[in-house]
Protein backbone atom coordinates (compact mmCIF):
# COMPACT_ATOMS: atom_id res chain seq x y z
CA UNK A 1 0.00 0.00 0.00
CA UNK A 2 1.35 3.45 -0.93
CA UNK A 3 0.46 6.42 1.21
CA UNK A 4 0.28 9.86 -0.33
CA UNK A 5 1.57 11.69 2.70
CA UNK A 6 2.34 11.19 6.33
CA UNK A 7 -0.31 12.06 8.87
CA UNK A 8 1.84 11.49 11.94
CA UNK A 9 5.57 12.08 12.07
CA UNK A 10 7.51 11.10 15.17
CA UNK A 11 11.17 12.17 15.08
CA UNK A 12 13.89 11.35 17.60
CA UNK A 13 11.41 11.20 20.45
CA UNK A 14 12.90 10.90 23.94
CA UNK A 15 11.16 11.04 27.28
CA UNK A 16 12.96 11.00 30.61
CA UNK A 17 10.75 11.36 33.69
CA UNK A 18 11.78 13.42 36.70
CA UNK A 19 12.58 10.20 38.50
CA UNK A 20 15.25 9.54 35.89
CA UNK A 21 13.32 6.76 34.17
CA UNK A 22 13.93 6.73 30.41
CA UNK A 23 10.54 5.84 28.98
CA UNK A 24 11.18 6.56 25.30
CA UNK A 25 14.58 6.74 23.65
CA UNK A 26 15.22 8.16 20.16
CA UNK A 27 11.95 6.87 18.72
CA UNK A 28 11.03 7.68 15.13
CA UNK A 29 8.17 6.47 12.95
CA UNK A 30 5.58 7.75 10.52
CA UNK A 31 1.93 6.89 10.06
CA UNK A 32 0.23 7.60 6.75
CA UNK A 33 -3.35 8.62 6.12
CA UNK A 34 -5.61 5.58 6.04
CA UNK A 35 -2.98 3.48 7.77
CA UNK A 36 -3.34 1.52 11.01
CA UNK A 37 -0.03 1.44 12.82
CA UNK A 38 0.46 -0.90 15.76
CA UNK A 39 2.87 -0.35 18.62
CA UNK A 40 3.67 -3.59 20.40
CA UNK A 41 5.97 -4.31 23.28
CA UNK A 42 6.07 -5.58 26.83
CA UNK A 43 4.98 -3.60 29.90
CA UNK A 44 7.31 -0.67 30.39
CA UNK A 45 8.44 -0.54 26.78
CA UNK A 46 7.18 3.03 26.31
CA UNK A 47 3.95 2.47 24.35
CA UNK A 48 1.65 4.47 26.63
CA UNK A 49 4.20 7.26 27.09
CA UNK A 50 4.56 7.58 23.30
CA UNK A 51 0.80 7.75 22.78
CA UNK A 52 0.42 10.27 25.63
CA UNK A 53 3.03 12.50 24.00
CA UNK A 54 1.22 12.29 20.66
CA UNK A 55 -2.05 13.11 22.45
CA UNK A 56 -0.39 16.20 24.05
CA UNK A 57 -0.76 14.89 27.60
CA UNK A 58 3.00 14.58 28.14
CA UNK A 59 5.79 16.73 26.81
CA UNK A 60 8.83 15.08 25.26
CA UNK A 61 12.29 15.63 26.64
CA UNK A 62 13.62 15.76 23.10
CA UNK A 63 12.41 15.14 19.59
CA UNK A 64 9.23 16.19 17.85
CA UNK A 65 5.78 14.97 16.90
CA UNK A 66 3.77 16.43 14.05
CA UNK A 67 0.11 15.56 13.47
CA UNK A 68 -1.12 16.68 10.07
CA UNK A 69 1.74 19.16 10.09
CA UNK A 70 0.86 20.53 13.53
CA UNK A 71 3.55 20.45 16.22
CA UNK A 72 1.91 18.81 19.25
CA UNK A 73 4.26 20.57 21.68
CA UNK A 74 4.00 24.07 20.27
CA UNK A 75 0.31 23.93 19.24
CA UNK A 76 -1.32 21.46 21.64
CA UNK A 77 -4.88 22.85 21.31
CA UNK A 78 -4.69 22.72 17.53
CA UNK A 79 -3.30 19.19 17.71
CA UNK A 80 -6.11 18.08 20.05
CA UNK A 81 -8.68 19.20 17.47
CA UNK A 82 -7.13 16.73 15.03
CA UNK A 83 -6.66 13.83 17.44
CA UNK A 84 -9.12 11.41 18.95
CA UNK A 85 -7.44 9.78 21.93
CA UNK A 86 -8.69 6.75 23.82
CA UNK A 87 -6.57 6.33 26.97
CA UNK A 88 -5.69 2.95 28.41
CA UNK A 89 -8.60 1.67 30.51
CA UNK A 90 -10.56 4.82 29.64
CA UNK A 91 -13.72 4.97 31.65
CA UNK A 92 -16.57 7.41 31.95
CA UNK A 93 -18.18 9.47 34.69
CA UNK A 94 -20.12 7.07 36.88
CA UNK A 95 -22.74 9.62 37.86
CA UNK A 96 -23.72 10.41 34.28
CA UNK A 97 -25.95 8.44 31.93
CA UNK A 98 -24.44 7.18 28.70
CA UNK A 99 -26.26 9.93 26.84
CA UNK A 100 -25.03 12.68 29.18
CA UNK A 101 -21.46 11.45 28.87
CA UNK A 102 -21.59 11.47 25.08
CA UNK A 103 -23.18 14.92 25.11
CA UNK A 104 -20.59 16.31 27.53
CA UNK A 105 -17.61 15.09 25.54
CA UNK A 106 -18.99 16.08 22.15
CA UNK A 107 -20.21 19.50 23.34
CA UNK A 108 -16.59 20.50 23.77
CA UNK A 109 -16.15 20.32 19.98
CA UNK A 110 -19.62 20.75 18.52
CA UNK A 111 -22.71 22.91 19.06
CA UNK A 112 -26.28 23.19 17.89
CA UNK A 113 -27.63 20.81 15.23
CA UNK A 114 -24.17 19.41 14.54
CA UNK A 115 -23.86 18.41 18.17
CA UNK A 116 -27.20 16.60 18.00
CA UNK A 117 -26.12 14.79 14.85
CA UNK A 118 -22.82 13.74 16.43
CA UNK A 119 -24.60 12.50 19.55
CA UNK A 120 -26.89 10.37 17.41
CA UNK A 121 -23.89 9.07 15.53
CA UNK A 122 -22.03 8.15 18.73
CA UNK A 123 -25.09 6.32 20.08
CA UNK A 124 -25.42 4.47 16.78
CA UNK A 125 -21.70 3.56 16.76
CA UNK A 126 -21.85 2.26 20.31
CA UNK A 127 -24.86 0.05 19.71
CA UNK A 128 -25.93 0.92 23.26
CA UNK A 129 -29.26 2.52 22.36
CA UNK A 130 -31.06 0.32 24.85
CA UNK A 131 -28.83 1.43 27.75
CA UNK A 132 -28.03 4.99 26.77
CA UNK A 133 -30.32 6.60 29.36
CA UNK A 134 -29.04 4.40 32.17
CA UNK A 135 -26.29 5.50 34.59
CA UNK A 136 -22.80 4.51 33.51
CA UNK A 137 -22.20 2.93 36.91
CA UNK A 138 -24.51 0.13 35.73
CA UNK A 139 -22.38 -0.49 32.60
CA UNK A 140 -19.92 -3.34 32.22
CA UNK A 141 -16.26 -2.56 31.54
CA UNK A 142 -16.75 -3.45 27.88
CA UNK A 143 -19.76 -1.16 27.57
CA UNK A 144 -17.82 1.73 29.11
CA UNK A 145 -14.95 1.16 26.74
CA UNK A 146 -17.23 1.02 23.71
CA UNK A 147 -19.03 4.16 24.91
CA UNK A 148 -15.72 6.03 25.18
CA UNK A 149 -14.59 4.77 21.77
CA UNK A 150 -17.86 5.77 20.15
CA UNK A 151 -17.38 9.31 21.48
CA UNK A 152 -13.87 9.42 20.03
CA UNK A 153 -15.04 8.15 16.65
CA UNK A 154 -18.02 10.51 16.50
CA UNK A 155 -15.57 13.40 16.82
CA UNK A 156 -14.29 12.49 13.33
CA UNK A 157 -10.64 13.07 14.22
CA UNK A 158 -7.94 13.02 11.55
CA UNK A 159 -5.76 10.83 13.77
CA UNK A 160 -6.97 8.09 16.09
CA UNK A 161 -4.72 7.26 19.02
CA UNK A 162 -5.93 4.13 20.80
CA UNK A 163 -4.08 2.81 23.84
CA UNK A 164 -4.89 -0.88 24.38
CA UNK A 165 -8.43 -0.46 23.00
CA UNK A 166 -9.44 -4.06 23.66
CA UNK A 167 -7.60 -4.56 26.94
CA UNK A 168 -9.76 -6.47 29.40
CA UNK A 169 -12.63 -6.99 26.97
CA UNK A 170 -14.17 -10.33 26.11
CA UNK A 171 -13.83 -11.82 22.63
CA UNK A 172 -17.17 -10.54 21.39
CA UNK A 173 -16.50 -6.96 22.51
CA UNK A 174 -12.92 -7.11 21.22
CA UNK A 175 -14.13 -8.09 17.75
CA UNK A 176 -16.77 -5.34 17.90
CA UNK A 177 -14.10 -2.74 18.75
CA UNK A 178 -11.70 -3.98 16.05
CA UNK A 179 -14.48 -3.84 13.45
CA UNK A 180 -15.32 -0.30 14.52
CA UNK A 181 -11.71 0.79 14.05
CA UNK A 182 -11.47 -0.83 10.62
CA UNK A 183 -14.77 0.61 9.46
CA UNK A 184 -13.82 4.09 10.62
CA UNK A 185 -10.41 3.89 8.92
CA UNK A 186 -12.00 2.86 5.64
CA UNK A 187 -14.68 5.53 5.78
CA UNK A 188 -12.62 8.51 6.97
CA UNK A 189 -9.14 7.64 5.65
CA UNK A 190 -7.59 8.59 8.96
CA UNK A 191 -4.32 7.55 10.50
CA UNK A 192 -4.73 5.13 13.39
CA UNK A 193 -2.11 4.33 16.01
CA UNK A 194 -2.92 1.36 18.23
CA UNK A 195 -0.94 -0.06 21.10
CA UNK A 196 -1.58 -3.59 22.24
CA UNK A 197 -0.22 -6.60 24.05
CA UNK A 198 -2.34 -8.82 21.84
CA UNK A 199 -0.05 -9.84 18.97
CA UNK A 200 -2.83 -11.68 17.15
CA UNK A 201 -4.98 -8.60 17.25
CA UNK A 202 -2.18 -6.42 15.94
CA UNK A 203 -1.42 -8.88 13.15
CA UNK A 204 -5.00 -8.87 11.90
CA UNK A 205 -5.73 -5.18 12.52
CA UNK A 206 -2.58 -3.26 11.62
CA UNK A 207 -1.02 -2.40 8.27
CA UNK A 208 2.36 -1.82 9.86
CA UNK A 209 3.82 -2.66 13.24
CA UNK A 210 6.54 -1.10 15.39
CA UNK A 211 8.16 -3.30 18.04
CA UNK A 212 9.14 -1.31 21.12
CA UNK A 213 11.58 -2.51 23.72
CA UNK A 214 12.99 -0.39 26.51
CA UNK A 215 11.71 2.72 24.77
CA UNK A 216 13.40 1.93 21.47
CA UNK A 217 12.01 0.80 18.15
CA UNK A 218 13.72 -2.53 17.53
CA UNK A 219 11.74 -3.60 14.46
CA UNK A 220 9.22 -2.06 12.11
CA UNK A 221 7.28 -3.08 9.02
CA UNK A 222 4.22 -4.81 7.65
CA UNK A 223 3.35 -7.98 9.62
CA UNK A 224 4.15 -10.18 6.59
CA UNK A 225 7.48 -8.47 6.03
CA UNK A 226 8.44 -8.81 9.70
CA UNK A 227 7.54 -12.50 9.79
CA UNK A 228 9.64 -13.08 6.68
CA UNK A 229 12.58 -11.05 7.95
CA UNK A 230 12.68 -12.81 11.31
CA UNK A 231 11.73 -16.21 9.88
CA UNK A 232 8.77 -16.29 12.24
CA UNK A 233 5.33 -17.79 11.91
CA UNK A 234 3.59 -15.02 13.85
CA UNK A 235 4.22 -11.64 15.49
CA UNK A 236 4.87 -13.19 18.88
CA UNK A 237 7.90 -14.94 17.44
CA UNK A 238 8.88 -11.73 15.66
CA UNK A 239 8.76 -9.91 18.95
CA UNK A 240 10.82 -12.50 20.81
CA UNK A 241 13.45 -12.66 18.08
CA UNK A 242 13.63 -8.90 17.67
CA UNK A 243 14.04 -8.37 21.39
CA UNK A 244 16.39 -11.34 21.67
CA UNK A 245 18.74 -9.91 19.07
CA UNK A 246 18.98 -6.70 21.10
CA UNK A 247 19.54 -8.54 24.36
CA UNK A 248 22.41 -10.40 22.81
Amino acid sequence: MVYISQSVEVRGLRKVFRSGVVAVDNLSFNVGRGEIYGLIGPNGSGKTTTLRIIATLLKPTAGSVFVEGVDVVKQPLEARRLIGYLPEEAGAYRDLTGYDFIKLMLSIRFHGPELEARIDEAISISGLEEFIEKPIKTYSKGMKRILALSVVLAQHPRVLVLDEPTSGLDVEKSIFVRDLIKKYRSREEVAVIVSSHNMLEVETLCDRVGVLWKGRLVAEGEPGYLKKTFSASNLEEVFLKAVGSHVL
Partner: peptide, 17 residues
Protein backbone atom coordinates in the same frame (compact mmCIF):
# COMPACT_ATOMS: atom_id res chain seq x y z
CA UNK B 1 -12.95 11.06 41.43
CA UNK B 2 -12.42 11.99 37.81
CA UNK B 3 -9.06 10.25 37.91
CA UNK B 4 -10.47 7.22 39.70
CA UNK B 5 -13.16 6.93 37.01
CA UNK B 6 -10.44 6.94 34.32
CA UNK B 7 -12.16 9.80 32.52
CA UNK B 8 -9.53 12.41 33.31
CA UNK B 9 -7.16 11.70 30.42
CA UNK B 10 -10.04 11.58 27.99
CA UNK B 11 -11.12 15.03 29.16
CA UNK B 12 -7.62 16.51 29.06
CA UNK B 13 -7.09 15.27 25.50
CA UNK B 14 -10.05 17.32 24.29
CA UNK B 15 -9.49 20.65 22.52
CA UNK B 16 -10.43 22.81 25.48
CA UNK B 17 -8.19 25.16 27.42
Amino acid sequence: MEKAEKAFELLLSQPVG
